[in-house]
Structures are given as C-alpha cells and as structure tokens.
C-alpha cells in the first residue's frame, strides 16, 4: 500500500463533498455533503497516522474528535434547519438570501 492512494481517495471524497455543498438546494443535503468532507478528512488523518507510526496514535485520536465534532455539527445544523423551516416553510438554501440587503 502506498500513502498516495489513501490521500487521493480522500481528495476524491472531499471534492465530491464540495460539489455537493455547492450544488444542493436542500439544506439537509448540504449538511450531508459536509459529512462526506469530514469522512475524507478522517481518512487522511488515519492514513497519515499509519504513515507516521505515531506512538500516541494522534491521528486516530483526532479522527475520533472529528467524529464527535461532526456529530455535534449535525445536531446543531439540523436544529437550525428545522428552525429555518418553521419560520420560512422551506429548507432550501437558495431561498435564504437575507445576506443580500
């Protein structure tokens, strides 16, 4: 196994995640694409951990942290989506153009 194959796989996953974030209209699906990006980051962490042979397994620990933070992010993100849905009767991102004043 070479290191590059994992990193390139991670890159592919990350790019697909970016694509999803940029093209999806539904906010839930945008969050889902963010999860894809986090999964790619995890692959990088674990691959580099194996590569570095870190005695403290720092890469693995941090991928665990990423999982935990990702779970928190989904929780908060979905709560916000829910709030937006309640207020605007829609969960579509492109209808949220309040940033244009």
């Amino acid at each position: 196994m070479i290191l590059g194959q994992f990193i390139i796989l991670g890159a592919a996953l990350f790019s697909l995640g970016v694509y999803g974030v940029l093209t999806r209209r539904n906010a839930v699906l945008v969050l889902l694409s963010v999860e894809l990006m986090l999964a790619a980051v995890n692959i990088n962490f674990v691959a580099f951990d194996t590569y570095a042979r870190d005695v403290t397994a720092g890469g693995q620990i941090f991928s665990l942290f990423v999982i935990a933070v990702g779970a928190a992010e989904v929780g908060i993100g979905l709560a916000i989506v829910l709030l937006i849905f309640r207020n605007r009767e829609s969960a579509n991102v492109d209808e949220l153009d309040l940033m244009k004043l």
Binding site: V93, L96, L98, K100
Partner: peptide, 14 residues
Amino acid sequence: LQTGKVQQYAILIF
C-alpha cells in the same frame, strides 16, 4: 457576486 446566495459565495471562496 452580490446575489446574497450562500452557495455562490461558497463557490467563490473555494
């Protein structure tokens, strides 16, 4: 650019 649409900003940032 000034559409106020988040994802278009995101495209530019990326």
